[in-house]
Amino acid sequence: MISQSFQATSRLSRSAQLLVSIAGLTLLSGCVTSRVENSREGMTGIRANESVVIMAKSYHVGNETEDKYISCVESALGRGKNGLNVIPHRTFVDSLFPWFEPRTAPAETKGLPKLMKRPGVAARIREQGVRYIIWLDGDTDKVAGGGSLSCAAGPGGGGCFGFAWWQKDADYDASIWDLDELESAGTITADVSGTSFMPALVVPIPLIARTQAAACKGLANQLRAFIVSEEAA
């Protein structure tokens, strides 16, 4: 009786170990390397009643920044007790229609004085307390990949065998425009490279590098530090 109970416990223990191993492998992620740098052109700072807007540079000039990346940076900047007030970009663009459409938005800070003189524009920006517009440029691309992985299924079951990998690069630039001074406050660049792996021995085990998420978090942290660090609120 004792022997049977021991064998059952041993089988349970082996199953648990297997599950833990699989879970551990699944939790492992691919390799990510990131570099975030900034270049300051002017003093910054933000008051409690001021806010920021995250915008994508125009697709008319070839930019392909993903909507979900903008939403990610918006969310990351606004999160936590040190979070900034972030106006959702679509709300901002609609409230100033048509002056921030891809075709009409100012491409450089020298277009800001003229824009602010348009009827109602300065007042609408002031109503929303927008102090900084952050223009994002860049995207995440798959730059390399390889390996071989094949799967098969039959009446008796199925499985996969092989090894595949791929590399993604996320390169984003953020230009920070100060709407009080009507000039550029500086730029931040985030270059993140991530390699994902998928070994498969019956069951494929994805080890995914969250490249874009790392670029989002890195850029948002740097943006927050850049904006709040210098001037007393």
């Binding site: 000039v61 002056w99 938005a105 100012p106 491409a107 450089e108 277009g111 003229k114 824009l115």
Partner: peptide, 12 residues
Amino acid sequence: VQVTVIEGDNGD
């Protein structure tokens, strides 16, 4: 006119 607008002149 359109090209001028794209270049950020805001079309005036």
